Amino acid sequence: MDDPIEYYGKCEECKQENTGDKYCKACNVKHFQQNFKNWTSGNNDIDKFIQDTQLTANFYDQVLEWIPYDKLYNINYISKDGFGKVYRAKWIDGYINRWDNINENWERFNSNGFVTLKSLNNSENVTLEFINEIIMHLKTRMPGKNLIVRVYGITQDPEAKNYMMVLSYAENGSLRNDLDRNYYELTWEAKLKYLLHITLGLQSIHENELIHRDLHIGNILSFGNKSFENQVMVTGMGLCKPAILENTKNSIYGVLPYVAPE
């Protein structure tokens, strides 16, 4: 049996049915297009990539923005892995929440809130790996379901010239860090909820006929704020590929010393 079709009400502006929660694709395409002239990353490929997400999105989680680096502050290094470096920062504007018909501008949420910045090694040149990781996050994130870490947009470090993904920030860090600190304080209900969220995150990936290929405890992030109590989300989608792309039977993926079980 097919899943029931979600109904999101009608757009206040055009009175047509919304395609997502408070999201009217037809109207928002016009709003985004009217703003194209007001920003640029300085890279035509990045501009087109971001614009394409804005023109094709059916809900807000599929939208990317170009985020000027000077809109970020209190930038602090967190960690690095084999693919790049991770930082924590505050974002002055916050992410798009809905279109405000009265003020004729985007209503934003979590202004001056924390975000994660992730740069890939040598990403001053836009690589397929960089774009692919963002695409996989967008493709597998389902409306109203916080199972895959959200990507808000792209920025660029003006000194190192590296492009960086701007993602939602996990207060508790990786699940490894969370369990190291809080394992004995977590209830069984919380632990089972963690397992449920991981399972549903993988289900979202597999329903899109993809394989994560780098699933380990460091690529599961733990959110502990009021909005996401006992919530974990899957991230690290850089090696994610279509299941039918190649024969992976005799191939090994992941990072040592852990190899993804898929």
Rank of each mutant, 00 (worst) to 15 (best):
G42K: 07
F109Y: 09
P68Y: 01
E229T: 14
L138W: 03
F59H: 15
W39T: 14
D180A: 02
T53W: 01
D21W: 12
E171G: 14
L215D: 09
S119C: 05
K48S: 15
I220H: 07
T40L: 01
F59G: 01
M165S: 10
V126E: 01
N162H: 14
R213K: 12
G218D: 15
S174L: 01
A170Q: 07
E12P: 13
N103A: 11
S119M: 01
G236Y: 06
T155L: 06
S168R: 03
S174P: 00
E246P: 00
T187V: 09
D93C: 07
V29G: 10
N177S: 09
N122K: 05
Y77R: 08
C24F: 03
I220L: 08
H212I: 04
E171N: 13
V86Q: 00
V126P: 01
N74G: 01
Y169G: 02
C27G: 08
I50G: 15
K90D: 02
E133A: 14
L128K: 11
W66C: 10
G236N: 05
N35C: 04
C27P: 13
L167E: 05
E6W: 00
N43G: 14
G94Y: 08
N35W: 00
N97I: 02
K193C: 05
L147K: 14
W91D: 05
G254P: 12
I5H: 02
V149H: 00
W91T: 09
N103C: 06
G224L: 04
T127V: 09
C14E: 13
N44K: 15
M233H: 00
F130S: 06
L215T: 10
H206Q: 10
N112T: 01
Q62Y: 04
V234M: 09
Q54W: 02
G82T: 03
Y184S: 14
E207V: 04
D3M: 11
D47N: 15
N219E: 05
G238I: 08
Y253A: 10
R213Y: 07
C27S: 09
K118N: 04
N97H: 12
Y194F: 15
G173P: 03
D2L: 13
N44M: 11
Q156V: 05
K37Y: 05
F49E: 02
V149G: 00
I102G: 00
D52G: 03
L72Q: 04
A170I: 07
W99F: 10
L55N: 11
K25S: 15
K25E: 14
G238Q: 12
N112I: 02
Q34T: 09
N121L: 13
L64D: 03
N38V: 02
D3I: 10
Q34R: 13
G144T: 10
T40N: 11
V151A: 15
G20Q: 11
Y169S: 12
M136Y: 04
K139E: 10
P4A: 07
I67E: 00
V234G: 02
T53F: 02
L239F: 13
Y23K: 02
V166R: 01
G224T: 10
G84E: 03
N177I: 01
N35G: 07
R88N: 06
T248S: 13
V259L: 14
L239K: 08
G94K: 05
H31G: 05
K10T: 11
H197E: 06
N103H: 13
K80H: 14
L55E: 12
G113H: 02
S111R: 11
K15W: 09
K22H: 12
L221R: 08
T187A: 04
G42S: 12
L120D: 01
L120Q: 10
D61Q: 11
G224I: 06
R150Y: 00
